[in-house]
Amino acid sequence: MDRISSTRPRPLSPNIQIYRPQLTSVLSIANRITGVALSVCAIGLVGWLVAAARGPRAYSWFQGVIGAWPVQILLLIATFAFFLHLCGGIRHLVWDSVRGFELRQIYSSGWAVVAASVLLTLATWFLSLTIGRVV
């Protein structure tokens, strides 16, 4: 049985304030943050479709907003968020099949997700910038 103290409640020992950030927890919270960020992007996707449906003027206004450099930086971050969530999600699907749970596999798949996300982000932007210039 619980001993009921008659004085003040017991303090809660620190958790996130002291726990060492590890690849496990950092990638998990990253998957969550990118998921929320991509949810905001999904709202933008609907806005973009509506602008396209309304006609050339609305569409070019929307394209103008997207073309502004602060929005371009946000889009670069969103691209990275997309690939991190995509690769991290595939890693989770593998875990759901009860594979890849050895620590060595957890860490190597984790770093692979980070590396793949950086490379895919760079490749995407390189391709879209070069195609945009050629076409």
């Binding site: 303090p11 996130i16 950030p21």
Partner: peptide
């Protein structure tokens, strides 16, 4: 380690008695 702890205030989200 790059970070010994998460970059948040030391008593972030902690109740006054804790």
């Amino acid at each position: 380690t790059l970070f010994k702890r998460f970059p948040i205030p030391r008593n972030f989200g902690v109740s006054p008695g804790s």
